[in-house]
Design a binder for these strands. Structure first.
Lengths: 159, 159
DNA sequence: GGGCTGACTTGCGTTTGCTGAAGTCAGCAG
DNA sequence: CTGCTGACTTCAGCAAACGCAAGTCAGCCC
């Protein structure tokens, strides 16, 4: 299997999955909305207050995220109230949990206050803190330089 | 240990690690530069060509990233050439590998072409594909809803 | 039917990120 | 000393993201 790094410029980056992912969840507020949604927030006002962006920005962002199928806009009704809508995570949205967790881990290490991290995620069963780590399908945990990069089936040759 | 989710609005999100991380690596081009740097790219021209942004944008982004200590600007000299500079990952930058990998995994699953992913990362020792997964410090692999959220030492009470 | 509330929308001005084209600058090769 | 090349910088100009303030709209409550 050829190492992509030795022939870097024969392959196009036009369909790179990292770039595609960034086109969908690349803005600061989208990520913060995902953080809140993964913590259980569902209502417009709660998103506005907890994420800390204005209402117009939030409305635009939520609309985009529903269109991108990260969130679903679901009608609900509390007794004695009229019908409203809440934003629930789809599977596509929920699967961003490792991304958000990796980002939080990194922020905890490299950008937290001296006091320490403001939020701790821990395993429900054993109480130990949760981290995003790299693993191969055979179950080996991977540290730094042990990764090979090769061209996949979706690669596109340049020009 | 209190569950943060039940008392969501008593805590400020001002010092959230996810938000802090996004302030540093939140832009599309910064992430794509990190992708390239983690694949081994070091020189200005190579970054410009492979990331696909213009020279002015690249120069600005690289300057920011050196200031943020993600990259280091190191002089080097090829025989018969004059001294130039290359951009090497710092430890802080290298530790974004789980974030980029999680993002690539997600893009492969939710935003790739029908043909499949353009790039495959595999474990050097066994050849199996690499994924970002969630694990607790006790070694348990975590699936979806098994995470508790609690306030950490750096939490800030609102107002 | 007038008020209240949650969920937006409209309007306007600012900042940030980017593009393209052109210019600069350092130093080795000839 | 002139040309060349890699690594930028400068100069418009554009589009997206965001903030603030104000307006709208849909019903249930009285």
């Amino acid at each position: 299997m050829e190492d992509l790094r030795e022939d870097r410029d024969s392959w196009s980056n036009a369909n790179c999955s990292v770039a595609r992912a960034m086109d969908i969840v690349g803005s600061r507020s989208t990520v913060l909305i995902m953080r809140e949604a993964l913590l259980g927030t569902r209502r417009f006002d709660d998103f506005v207050r907890r994420v800390g962006v204005g209402e117009p920005a939030m409305a635009a962002r939520l609309k985009e995220m529903v269109a991108a199928n990260l969130l679903e806009r679901i009608p609900y009704r509390e007794p004695g109230q009229r019908t409203r809508h809440e934003y629930q995570l789809t599977r596509k949205g929920r699967e961003l949990l490792p991304v958000i967790t990796a980002l939080r881990n990194w922020g905890d290490t490299w950008a937290a206050d001296d006091a320490g991290p403001p939020v701790i995620a821990s395993h429900h069963d054993c109480g130990q803190p949760v981290h995003a780590v790299l693993r191969c399908a055979a179950g080996h945990e991977i540290t730094d330089g042990e990764i090979d990069i090769s061209a996949g089936p979706g690669r596109i040759r340049r020009d």
